[in-house]
Amino acid sequence: MTNAPVRLKVIDSGAALGAAEAFSKGQVDLAVVRSDFGDLSHAQAVIVVTHAIVMIVVPPGSSIDSVEKLKGHTVGVVGVVGGEANSKVVDVPTKEYDLTRKVVFKNIAPADARRQFNPSQSALIVVIPLTQKYLSQVRAWFTPGPKAAPVLIPIEAAGITHRRASYGSSSVSQ
């Protein structure tokens, strides 16, 4: 039938992770999710809303200048408390850089990131859309000043992009 109207019934699954689970179980035909959520092996993209980036951020003056130097430190993972949303984001570099049992990951709600980013949190892992709005929010977690800008730790993407097709490489200007 041509020109048939499309009718959608919106089902509130609470969050993107719930939407991914409902899609994986066949409970829904369409879901709005990140490409690294749940079992999306039978999914096709209808529309890409945004591209998210993963950043590892350290405070100004930190001695940490590589992923390998995170060993022995606590890293805050900014996202939904409970950590399920970013568990794969943490899992991939943990395996790629052999961080298992060498780094403590602590889930932090976005609203608490500024307050909890202190000497006990050596670094933050942040997953955000690549827009000025969200980059500005990350910068706001740090005390303003010419030498107070956060420092981004490069994640060498070669091994990671081969492990997970949903991940790619991008550059973010500091």
Rank of each mutant, 00 (worst) to 15 (best):
T161W: 01
V67R: 03
R114Y: 00
V58L: 07
Q116G: 01
E156P: 01
K106N: 00
R163Y: 07
G145K: 03
D98V: 15
D112L: 05
F142Y: 14
V89W: 07
Q121V: 12
A165M: 04
R101T: 12
V67T: 08
T50D: 15
A140L: 02
S62D: 03
F105C: 02
V80E: 04
V127Q: 07
L135G: 13
Q121N: 14
G159L: 07
G76E: 10
I128E: 06
L70Q: 10
A140V: 01
G145Y: 06
H73E: 10
K147Y: 10
S136G: 13
V103P: 07
I53D: 05
T143V: 12
I64R: 03
E156K: 03
G145Q: 08
Q121T: 13
I160D: 00
I64T: 04
I64K: 02
S122Y: 05
M55V: 13
I125K: 03
Y97H: 02
V90Y: 10
A158F: 09
L99W: 01
V89M: 12
I155C: 01
D112E: 06
Q116M: 05
V127D: 03
V92T: 10
K88L: 12
N107A: 08
K88I: 10
R101F: 13
I53N: 06
K102C: 13
E96S: 13
I155S: 00
I108L: 08
Y97V: 03
S87Q: 10
R164I: 09
R164D: 12
R139Q: 11
A140N: 04
V126T: 00
E68T: 12
N118I: 03
E68H: 12
V104E: 12
P59A: 09
I125W: 05
I64V: 06
V67Q: 04
